[in-house]
Each structure stands twice: as structure tokens, then as C-alpha cells.
Write a protein that binds this DNA or RNA. Structure first.
Lengths: 339, 339
DNA sequence: TTGAAAGCGCTAACAA
DNA sequence: TTGTTAGCGCTTTCAA
């Protein structure tokens, strides 16, 4: 294997020093045009490719930022990542993705790996399992920018980008009530994650504001998945106090709910169904799934903006902003009661 | 900001040299147990975290491998990545993901970025746009393992993991014929990608083997997306020689086809539809989408295995294997003609 | 079993 | 405008 070309090779070829080469390559202003051109040409000719490791080791900046998400398979997270990349690309930062798969263990590992790789900052949305956040605290200790989005944790004093989830829960519930549904159930996760609690609060508030009772048996704590949706809705529909509408923790869960309802011949909108996140498939299943859009693109964009601001500051945590976006309702067939 | 702990800090604290610390940390055998324990304890106490950059710079091994895919939003690719990670994790290799978003430009950039980051190898599935493969050739030139999967390119003399796409096309077509469909159309991409050409060949062969004509007007070259599916099927259904079944280039395209067919009241299986890839949503749309499963998990697993083999060799390209997996048919409602 | 020292490829302060 | 030089944090050869 031929050895890789380094700036020394370029320097030698031109009879100048490495510092000149380095400067020419990095666009340092005080360089004669002739030298710069010569360096660039020789670099090209020798097929030079910079070793970012070396430069990062020296400068202490990798220009890589790590993003930890539960899973890229959820359109919501994939979309956020895409917008983070987009918002960052002009500034030369690259994104590397780490998936926790909803496991704290993986998440801890992710933080460790990213930190060892010397990323310049981390953005994360926590796994459902996460309760202790010491691993994230370590990032702050190293004084590196940390931004949490969507699934945040109040123990961490860092900037956050979230949705107004109380409003999201309220909005979904109010919409169903407006459509004439009265016995509205709620399927959510057992995990104590703020956003899911907030939605639940919004759900309860909407019921109360409309003079409807909040029934404990209408609130199902379980997981979030197609399977959990089937299971939860099955349980609800078999109970004595059968609901006439179901709010599901996310669109995947809602998909399971719809599937189950069709099987027992209570096809929505006979029983109303609404989910959260506006996944790609939601508009295409039958009946089309109503959902609460969580504005993933904005979340991603704000993350990028926030990061750029933080790296510029001496102390990234100088001021800690909490950006809260408003959800929007996307009403489709699954929750529009026929006349 | 407090300075990060290095092996020098540990060495100083214990009055030994960095080389000893380094050896203790990396599990070098010729170290006294006492020293090792002391180093480990002190490392813990000082909250030491290794700087992988430095170690990578010195050793020339980052233990990171780059994976380039068109998009992680396709379940097919997400699943492959997951299995690559899985197959590699015991060996200490980490995966970083780069998305080309079906653009050569991004892909070229991806190779460059990964190479500059000094990854130990690259696995890739090419974008639809890719024709020239010089950027990939550069990886080979650097003598780093390169493995192509699914969307491969014959100019590159590297190991590949693919599906038997001829068979996949044949299988889909034969299935529709077996179901009694006779005028079968085929929507595919205009891009000259081997796997899509192979499927087309399989489609033609199946028609011929069954004594059916191959009609050029039944073959639509366009893009692959929900939108393209709607457009392509619209065009087909408006033509004088209307097909009674449509094979779509992937499940997203098939989704668009189904949507269009429902709109014009030719809901499948009235007109049969089958896709490729078995995306997550395919089982849940109405009617359920028949599809050709491409065994993403196996592809991922084989990639990992192949990589591990290649890094062990002096010359990674010493012998170039081409692994070809067999597709399987998943017949669902969209292609099962009612009696 | 441990230490000394060179160096991976690059940057940047200082000097010229 | 360019050169000299000292590292960044770690690994590893050679010597003790």
C-alpha cells in the first residue's frame, strides 16, 4: 500500500515548509497567490487528502456533532436529523447519528463513544427507559454543547427544543369532542417521560373543560408500537365502559389500534382514532389516520441554530433557552365522524 | 473549562510513565497486576476518558466504519444498518452513517468525509444517480475495505452482497400470472442501476416463459416514490392498452399506485399490485401490499462478516466474493384475485 | 515489568 | 509572506 500523501510531501515537492502548506490549504489570508496556487495544484497532483484526525487532535475541534435518537426509523426523528444536517452544513459541521433503540444502555454507550470520538457537541432525544441522566451530565462537565429535543429531562440544565405537548394532548382531545365523541380513551407509555405526561394532562384538561369525566379505566399505560396499539385497544374495547374514540401515543400505536378496530368491525371513524407525529404512512392507511403534527423540520432547524449559537460562546451554557413549538392538528378520516 | 484528564495525569499521580499507563489501559499482558489495578483505579478517580483521535492518529486505526446509503428512512436500509451494527459490535467496530439522499454529489462528499475521518472501511449502496464511480475507486486505492450491497456497480472490483434481482422480478411476475393477471405493467427507474435492470429482465423472462407478450408501453421509466407511483399508474391506466396488474419498483411507488387505483375506482386486487422491499407500512395499508422481501437482515449480516474477513487480510481485495441471496414472495391482498 | 523517546499529521505562536 | 518549532494524546520500539 502506497503511503498517504501528507503536507510534508507537498512541502518537499515545492521546497517550502509545512506551515506554508498548511496555511495555503486552510485559506489563511497572508499567503501569496503564487504559493497558494502552487500548493493547491501539487495537492491535487499528489492526490492529497487531509487527515482530519491530526488536525482535530491539534486544534481540539472535530467539527463533528453527535445526534442521539431512539431510532431513525421513525419519520419524526429522521426528519429532525435531516433538518439538523441542513442547518449545519454551511458552517462545516457534520453530523453523526447514534441510535439508542430505546435502551439506556445503548444511550450511555452512545454518549461515551461520541465523547471519545471528541465530537464538538451532542444533541439528543432520550430513550423511553432513561431516568438517570448522569451520562448526559458528563457532556456538560466537559463544557461541550448539549441540546435536548422532544424527549427532554428537567434535571439537565441545558437548552431544549420541544413541542407544547400539553396543547397537543388538549388539541387531539378537543378535536374528538368537537366531532361528537364522548368516551375518549388514551393509550400512552408507562415510562415517566415529560412529553407523554404533558399530553395526558392536556387530555384530562380538555375533558374537564368540556364537562366530560376523566375515567381511569380509559387511560392505558403500556408501550408504543403497533403491537401495543392492538393490545391496548383490544383491552379497551372489551371493557364494560367501551370508549367511542381512542387517542394513541404515536402513529405506530394508532396503526395498531386501527387494525384491531377493523378486526372487531368497529372501523374508524365509527370509533374515532388519532395519533401523534404524522408519520409518512399515516396519510396512506385506510382510513387515513388523523394525527398531531409535531413540526420535526422546525425542531431540527432550531437545534442547528441553537448549536451554532452555543459554540460561539465562551460558556455554552451561558444562557439556557427553552424553545417550545406549537403542534398542529391534521384531521383525516379516522376521526371525522360521518354525518 | 477544566482540562481533560490524559494518561500523563494518571502517570504523574502514580509516579510511573505514560507508556506503562498506556499498556495497563489497553490490556497489554506484561504488566504487574498491582500496576494495572492502580492505573485503572486512578483513571476512574480522575474521570479519565481516552481520546480516540490521538490513539487513532498513532495507530492508524479508528475502528470506525462508514456506511453510505441512499436514505435511512427506507426500512430496508435502516434494517441493513441495524444488522451491520449488530454483526460488528463484538469486534469493537462502530458504524457511522452517511445518507446520499439519492444524489451523487452527496455521495462523493460522503466518501470524502469518511475518508478524511480515517474510517477503517466503507460499505455502500449507491444512489440512483451514480454512474461514475471514481470516488469509490479512491477507497480501493487507499487499500481500505470497500463492500457494496444491493445497489452495486460492476466497474468496481469489490465484494458485493446482493439479492438475485432477476429472480425477484421473475417471481413477482409469475405470481401475478398465477393469480390470473395477464396484462402486467412494470414501473421502474430511468437510472441504469443493475438491480432494477435485472428485475426488468426477470419480468420480461417470466412473461415470455408464460407465452405473454412484452409490451413496451407497459414499461414505465420514471422515479421511485409515492408521487411517481401515482403518476406512472395514472399514465398506464389512461392508455389504450390498460394493464390489469402493476409491478412497482419499490413499496413506496406501489403505495402511490394503490392510491391512484383507489381514486379511479379500480381498487386492488381488481388491478393487481406488487412492490419490492417489504417496508414496515406494507402490511398495514389497505389493501395490504404484496411485495418481494429482500432479506435486509441477511444482507447486513453478510456485510459485517465480509468486512471482518477483509480487515484480517493483508490485501483486503485478495479474493473478491459476490454473495447473492434469494428473494421471497410475500403475497397479500393487493395481488390475490378474489374468486 | 517498566522507562525513554520518537513520531502519527497537523496547527499556530513566535520569529524573521 | 514564510520558516521554525513545539506540541495535541497516544502507541510502540528499543533498552534497561
Amino acid at each position: 500500500m502506497k503511503k498517504k500523501t501528507t503536507i510534508y510531501d507537498i512541502a518537499k515537492a515545492l521546497n517550502i515548509t509545512v506551515s506554508t502548506v498548511s496555511r495555503a490549504l486552510s485559506g489563511f489570508p497572508a499567503i501569496s497567490d503564487a504559493t497558494r496556487t502552487a500548493v493547491l495544484e501539487t495537492a491535487q497532483k499528489l492526490n492529497y487528502s487531509p487527515n482530519k484526525l491530526a488536525s482535530a487532535l491539534k486544534s481540539g475541534k472535530t467539527h463533528i456533532i453527535g445526534v442521539i435518537v431512539p431510532s431513525v426509523q421513525a419519520h419524526f426523528f429522521a426528519s429532525i436529523i435531516h433538518c439538523i444536517e441542513d442547518g449545519l452544513k454551511d458552517s462545516g459541521y457534520r453530523v453523526i447519528i447514534y441510535q439508542s433503540n430505546e435502551s439506556v444502555e445503548n444511550e450511555i454507550n452512545g454518549v461515551k463513544t461520541l465523547l471519545e470520538a471528541q465530537v464538538d457537541g451532542i444533541m439528543a432525544s432520550m430513550s423511553l427507559e432513561t431516568e438517570n441522566v448522569d451520562h448526559f451530565a458528563e457532556i456538560i462537565k466537559q463544557n461541550k454543547p448539549l441540546i435536548l429535543f422532544d424527549r427532554v429531562h428537567q434535571d439537565l440544565k441545558v437548552p431544549t427544543i420541544t413541542l407544547n405537548d400539553f396543547k397537543a394532548g388538549y388539541m387531539a382531545t378537543q378535536h374528538l369532542i368537537d366531532q361528537g365523541y364522548e368516551r375518549i380513551a388514551f393509550i400512552t407509555t408507562i415510562h415517566q417521560i415529560k412529553i407523554f405526561n404533558d399530553r395526558l394532562k392536556g387530555y384530562k384538561a380538555a375533558l374537564q373543560d368540556n364537562g366530560l369525566p376523566v375515567l381511569e379505566e380509559h387511560i392505558v399505560f403500556g408501550g408504543l408500537s403497533i403491537k401495543d396499539g392492538r393490545f391496548g385497544s383490544g383491552k379497551l374495547m372489551r371493557s364494560k365502559n367501551k370508549p367511542d374514540a381512542i387517542i394513541a401515543g404515536d402513529d405506530f400505536t394508532a396503526l395498531g389500534v386501527i387494525k384491531k378496530l377493523k378486526e372487531i368491525d368497529e372501523t374508524p371513524p365509527e370509533v374515532g382514532v388519532i395519533g401523534f407525529a404524522n408519520e409518512a404512512f399515516s396519510a396512506y392507511i385506510t382510513p387515513n389516520l388523523s394525527t398531531i403534527d409535531q413540526h420535526a423540520p422546525q425542531i431540527g432547524k432550531e437545534c442547528a441554530k441553537m448549536f451554532l449559537k452555543m459554540v460561539k460562546q465562551e460558556d455554552p451554557f451561558e444562557e439556557i433557552a427553552h424553545i417550545v413549538l406549537d403542534p398542529s392538528l391534521i384531521a383525516r378520516q379516522s376521526s371525522i365522524k360521518e354525518p
